[in-house]
Write a protein that binds this DNA or RNA. Structure first.
Lengths: 364, 364
DNA sequence: CAAAATGATGTTAGCGCTATCATTGCGCGA
DNA sequence: TCGCGCAATGATAGCGCTAACATCATTTTG
């Protein structure tokens, strides 16, 4: 045959490489030449060392150092259809709750040689669809995505990708695959329960206008309505005002002002984040309202500053790092051949009400 | 020839694909078959649409939708040696300063089709070397790395990678390539200057034990020593105590306690982060010391809570988002063929002292 | 002691895309 | 009318690696 099927000779004997250097980088075959073995043997020595004799392994290791070889995992991923990348899609990392999750996923996965491809979806559903398509084009071995409310297109794409998917930071009856989060609705109910228990009756909500805050607000309102029906003459009531995202102190002040305008006798304001809560406190102080005696404030997130402010902020704690750890564990299990199992693949990690000084915990 | 050199037929006419589906995913050639054109034409229609006639472009677009094609950029990256990924290496994202930078780099790059590969280096130099090697194996088109103090191995690897490198969050006389940051030493001096101007004489430092905090402490001490020499009888003095990383409130309290043990008449404590500063304030309040009358406190970072605490925290503001934006702009310029230019490729974005209520700004 | 099993290494054939060059068709000026 | 330039498209040959199978030398086994 004039043209041998081996159109790309890969002489691995000492006579050396002969394909002209295409990219300037050291390739597997260069290491192979230096070690006097075949490329495949180098590949094995690096990726499945147990299959290679000790003598060869050492020679290869020496050759790797000598040549300064850095594997090209792009090529490796293409050849093996395993990219060893996990896409993590969150609305933002400039928000310590999601940042904690990203941090702990990254930490846990990196130990096992996986890397994180970061996708920031913003708070708009249509952005999510674009980001999902973009990250899927990298053929990640798994996708972690915040939230359970996705567009039909997003769901279809994620399913078509045929990779493990973990939805986090939320609960749902109908997860795509794995689900590790908590119920925002339950948070709202629990907060209402707690504040009713403290004896408050007239509530404002200062909530960021994102889907998960909506759900917490809904849970809160549900519980309040139950209380209204149980005790119709107690004057229990709630109004909700929405703040722009991202949540800022100023947004909190504005929302608090709106609440106090429409409900001047409001006793407690519930916020969708600790940051908004700080703004609410600032607004209260600027009106010479005393927190919590005149106005109670409840945050969400238990960010690092919540315990340190004065008065210390009552809030709801979510263990984001735990979500990240569990996510990593479950993914590694799947990569390791573990089968989907709807029992253990849906985890509600719950939450914790943290009463501090911005709410009066007097018995009702 | 029995074996045509085209060992992988890619019939693009309507008769259809014939390589058996290897991975189950839709390939470029499937789209080509559906559109009745060659693979290459589809590739062009997607990546360089201006080279394709409008009629063809539309047919391809229809075929893409019809087949549900998601490009495989792993293959694309291998073929073109351009991955359209930028590696971003920071110590942590669970810290709003770095999170802001990551957020703004990601935002700015994603508009141009680039994605961020996240590498968390921790605060240890040896970890950095490993992370650098790992991310370089993905052949990113650029590397963004926090800090300028790298091991020799790291520097060598980054240089060998022959990609643009941006060092951020720091200043140096000897950058690897581009540099966008500020001088920690100058921050330390400026803080000392400011506090001396406020009339304080006896200083403690509660600093996290990381390289950049060390540099700020050094700058602070340098300025203090100058003041001592200028006014030897004023009793100007400073002691420094180190807190563990990550910086926490408790770390701040502990460091403050250590300072106050060794220098009971300390007038002002300078911290390497706002979080530590909150801890210092907490410790002061627990000792019934009044901030700022008995003890002044200075933070670093101007995190979201700094303005909202009581008393509001005096601190140093760094515009992390601006670092991210500039980084993205400079990288995109390079990708676009821009040449290195040592004048514009080294940017000191400076910082800002933000006096609030934890320091007495009385004239000295 | 032949046959089968095992361990170590090598060979081949792609993974799905794009750089590059080749080909085709068409308009246009001399 | 002929060729030239240009625009549009196609064919070919890899990018650097690994899955899968092939080979060969030992070792084990009945």
């Amino acid at each position: 045959m004039g043209r041998s099927p081996d159109s790309r000779p890969d002489r691995s004997d000492e006579s050396g490489r002969d394909r002209p250097r295409a990219t300037g980088a050291v390739r597997l075959s260069d290491v192979a030449a230096a070690a006097g073995v075949a490329s495949m043997t180098v590949s094995r020595a690096l990726n499945q060392p147990e299959l290679v004799s000790e003598r060869t392994r050492e020679r290869v290791q020496r050759a790797v150092i000598e040549t300064g070889y850095v594997p090209n995992r792009v090529a490796g991923a293409l050849a093996s259809s395993r990219s060893r990348m996990v896409a993590v899609l969150v609305p933002t990392v400039a928000h310590s709750l999601f940042a904690d999750v990203v941090q702990s996923i990254t930490d846990a996965l990196s130990v096992n040689g996986y890397q994180v491809l970061l996708g920031l979806t913003g708070y708009q559903t249509q952005d999510e669809a674009t980001v999902v398509e973009t990250v899927l084009s990298r053929r990640p071995d798994a996708v972690v995505v915040a939230g359970t409310r996705h567009s039909q297109a997003t769901r279809a794409r994620l399913k078509a990708a045929r990779v493990p998917v973990v939805e986090i930071w939320d609960m749902s009856d109908d997860p795509l695959d794995m689900l590790i989060g908590f119920s925002h609705h339950a948070v709202g109910r629990a907060v209402a329960d707690y504040l009713l228990g403290c004896g408050y009756r007239r509530f404002g909500q200062a909530m960021a206008d994102d889907p998960r805050s909506h759900e917490r607000a809904e849970g809160f309102n549900d519980r309040i309505m139950e209380a209204q029906q149980a005790r119709p003459h107690d004057g229990i009531d709630v109004i909700t005002r929405w703040a722009e995202i991202p949540a800022t102190l100023v947004g909190g002040r504005t929302a608090a002002a709106a609440v106090l305008l429409d409900m001047p006798d409001c006793e407690a304001i519930v916020c969708s984040s600790d940051t908004l809560a700080m703004g609410v406190i600032a607004e209260a102080q600027s009106r010479a309202m005393v927190v919590p005696q005149t106005l109670a404030v409840m945050g969400f997130g238990d960010m690092s500053f919540a315990a340190a402010t004065w008065p210390a902020l009552s809030t709801v704690r979510i263990d984001g790092a735990e979500i990240g750890r569990l996510t990593a564990t479950h993914l590694l299990n799947r990569f390791d051949g573990g089968e989907p199992d709807s029992d253990s693949d849906i985890i509600d990690i719950g939450f914790e009400i943290v009463p501090r000084q911005t709410t009066l915990s007097g018995a009702s």
